[in-house]
Protein backbone atom coordinates (compact mmCIF):
# COMPACT_ATOMS: atom_id res chain seq x y z
CA UNK A 1 0.00 0.00 0.00
CA UNK A 2 1.06 3.54 -0.56
CA UNK A 3 0.83 6.48 1.81
CA UNK A 4 2.01 9.95 0.88
CA UNK A 5 2.50 12.82 3.29
CA UNK A 6 3.65 16.35 2.79
CA UNK A 7 4.91 18.55 5.62
CA UNK A 8 4.77 22.31 5.50
CA UNK A 9 6.47 24.65 7.95
CA UNK A 10 4.12 27.38 9.14
CA UNK A 11 6.91 29.74 10.17
CA UNK A 12 9.20 29.51 7.18
CA UNK A 13 8.75 32.61 5.04
CA UNK A 14 8.50 32.26 1.27
CA UNK A 15 11.79 33.00 -0.44
CA UNK A 16 12.36 35.21 -3.45
CA UNK A 17 12.46 32.70 -6.30
CA UNK A 18 15.05 34.79 -8.13
CA UNK A 19 17.58 34.06 -5.38
CA UNK A 20 17.51 30.39 -6.39
CA UNK A 21 18.99 31.20 -9.79
CA UNK A 22 22.64 31.64 -10.69
CA UNK A 23 21.89 34.97 -12.27
CA UNK A 24 19.70 36.41 -9.55
CA UNK A 25 16.72 37.89 -11.34
CA UNK A 26 13.40 39.53 -10.60
CA UNK A 27 11.11 36.65 -11.45
CA UNK A 28 8.02 38.06 -9.73
CA UNK A 29 7.68 34.74 -7.94
CA UNK A 30 8.24 33.39 -4.49
CA UNK A 31 9.09 29.85 -3.51
CA UNK A 32 7.78 27.70 -0.67
CA UNK A 33 9.41 24.40 0.21
CA UNK A 34 7.80 21.30 1.68
CA UNK A 35 9.10 17.88 2.67
CA UNK A 36 7.44 14.94 1.01
CA UNK A 37 7.51 11.27 2.00
CA UNK A 38 6.03 8.38 0.00
CA UNK A 39 5.73 5.13 1.94
CA UNK A 40 5.19 1.73 0.37
CA UNK A 41 4.10 -0.37 3.30
CA UNK A 42 2.08 -3.30 4.61
CA UNK A 43 0.18 -3.39 7.87
CA UNK A 44 -1.87 -0.83 9.74
CA UNK A 45 -2.24 2.62 8.27
CA UNK A 46 -3.13 4.22 11.61
CA UNK A 47 0.16 2.98 13.07
CA UNK A 48 2.06 4.43 10.13
CA UNK A 49 0.18 7.70 10.57
CA UNK A 50 1.09 7.68 14.21
CA UNK A 51 4.72 7.12 13.24
CA UNK A 52 4.61 10.10 10.89
CA UNK A 53 3.20 12.33 13.65
CA UNK A 54 5.69 11.32 16.29
CA UNK A 55 8.83 10.99 14.18
CA UNK A 56 8.58 13.17 11.09
CA UNK A 57 6.35 16.00 12.22
CA UNK A 58 7.06 18.87 14.56
CA UNK A 59 3.52 19.76 15.67
CA UNK A 60 4.64 23.14 17.01
CA UNK A 61 5.91 24.47 13.71
CA UNK A 62 4.57 22.18 10.99
CA UNK A 63 1.33 21.19 9.27
CA UNK A 64 0.77 17.67 8.05
CA UNK A 65 -0.93 17.05 4.75
CA UNK A 66 -1.84 13.37 4.26
CA UNK A 67 -2.75 13.00 0.62
CA UNK A 68 -1.16 12.58 -2.76
CA UNK A 69 -2.55 15.88 -4.07
CA UNK A 70 -0.46 19.04 -3.50
CA UNK A 71 -0.92 20.73 -0.14
CA UNK A 72 -1.18 24.15 -1.78
CA UNK A 73 -3.90 25.11 -4.23
CA UNK A 74 -2.58 28.15 -6.01
CA UNK A 75 0.82 27.86 -7.60
CA UNK A 76 2.38 28.49 -10.98
CA UNK A 77 4.21 25.17 -10.88
CA UNK A 78 6.03 22.97 -8.50
CA UNK A 79 9.33 21.18 -8.79
CA UNK A 80 9.92 17.90 -6.98
CA UNK A 81 13.56 17.05 -6.39
CA UNK A 82 14.96 13.95 -4.78
CA UNK A 83 18.23 12.06 -4.82
CA UNK A 84 18.67 9.27 -7.32
CA UNK A 85 18.33 5.77 -5.93
CA UNK A 86 21.73 4.41 -4.95
CA UNK A 87 22.95 7.74 -3.60
CA UNK A 88 23.10 8.22 0.11
CA UNK A 89 20.07 10.18 1.29
CA UNK A 90 20.92 10.80 4.92
CA UNK A 91 17.42 11.78 5.97
CA UNK A 92 15.90 8.72 4.36
CA UNK A 93 18.63 6.57 5.87
CA UNK A 94 17.86 7.96 9.34
CA UNK A 95 14.13 7.27 8.96
CA UNK A 96 14.60 3.77 7.54
CA UNK A 97 17.15 2.86 10.21
CA UNK A 98 14.83 4.08 12.96
CA UNK A 99 11.92 2.09 11.53
CA UNK A 100 14.09 -1.03 11.40
CA UNK A 101 15.21 -0.60 15.00
CA UNK A 102 11.64 -0.46 16.30
CA UNK A 103 10.32 -3.83 17.28
CA UNK A 104 6.81 -2.86 18.34
CA UNK A 105 5.51 -1.54 15.01
CA UNK A 106 2.52 -3.23 13.43
CA UNK A 107 3.34 -1.94 9.97
CA UNK A 108 6.25 -2.82 7.73
CA UNK A 109 8.13 -0.45 5.51
CA UNK A 110 8.84 -1.72 2.02
CA UNK A 111 10.20 1.39 0.37
CA UNK A 112 10.39 5.04 1.25
CA UNK A 113 11.09 7.94 -1.02
CA UNK A 114 11.97 11.30 0.42
CA UNK A 115 11.97 14.53 -1.52
CA UNK A 116 11.61 18.27 -1.44
CA UNK A 117 8.80 20.04 -3.24
CA UNK A 118 9.35 23.62 -4.32
CA UNK A 119 6.13 25.53 -5.00
CA UNK A 120 6.56 28.59 -7.19
CA UNK A 121 3.93 31.10 -6.27
CA UNK A 122 2.67 34.21 -7.98
CA UNK A 123 2.06 35.18 -11.54
CA UNK A 124 5.46 34.20 -12.79
CA UNK A 125 7.42 35.93 -15.48
CA UNK A 126 9.31 32.78 -16.34
CA UNK A 127 8.66 29.08 -16.55
CA UNK A 128 10.37 26.25 -14.69
CA UNK A 129 13.32 25.76 -17.06
CA UNK A 130 15.79 28.16 -15.41
CA UNK A 131 14.97 26.69 -12.01
CA UNK A 132 15.52 23.17 -13.25
CA UNK A 133 18.83 24.23 -14.76
CA UNK A 134 20.07 25.81 -11.54
CA UNK A 135 18.48 23.66 -8.82
CA UNK A 136 18.81 20.20 -10.32
CA UNK A 137 22.04 18.35 -10.94
CA UNK A 138 21.10 15.49 -13.28
CA UNK A 139 24.07 13.52 -11.99
CA UNK A 140 22.46 13.03 -8.59
CA UNK A 141 18.86 14.21 -8.80
CA UNK A 142 15.58 13.00 -10.20
CA UNK A 143 13.00 15.71 -10.68
CA UNK A 144 9.50 16.35 -11.86
CA UNK A 145 7.58 19.50 -12.74
CA UNK A 146 3.82 19.97 -12.49
CA UNK A 147 2.07 23.11 -13.63
CA UNK A 148 -0.69 24.54 -11.50
CA UNK A 149 -3.77 26.52 -12.20
CA UNK A 150 -2.26 29.91 -11.47
CA UNK A 151 -1.27 31.94 -14.51
CA UNK A 152 2.28 31.66 -15.77
Amino acid sequence: MRHIVEILNRFQPDTDAGRLLYTPADTGMTCRTTRRYAFQYTGRLDSLQDFVRTVLLDPISEDLHEAARPCLDEFAFYLDISLKPGLLDLEKEAVVQYVRDRQDADWTLETLSVGRRYYFLGTGLIGPEPFIRDMVNPVIHTWNVVHGTALV
Partner: peptide, 14 residues
Amino acid sequence: SYGDYIMAGRLAQL
Protein backbone atom coordinates in the same frame (compact mmCIF):
# COMPACT_ATOMS: atom_id res chain seq x y z
CA SER B 1 22.78 13.97 17.48
CA TYR B 2 22.37 11.16 14.94
CA GLY B 3 22.97 13.84 12.31
CA ASP B 4 19.75 15.75 13.03
CA TYR B 5 18.63 14.79 9.54
CA ILE B 6 14.93 14.53 10.32
CA MET B 7 14.92 17.56 12.60
CA ALA B 8 17.23 18.74 15.33
CA GLY B 9 17.07 16.49 18.38
CA ARG B 10 14.24 14.25 17.19
CA LEU B 11 16.04 10.90 17.04
CA ALA B 12 17.95 11.59 20.26
CA GLN B 13 14.63 12.37 21.96
CA LEU B 14 12.99 9.17 20.70
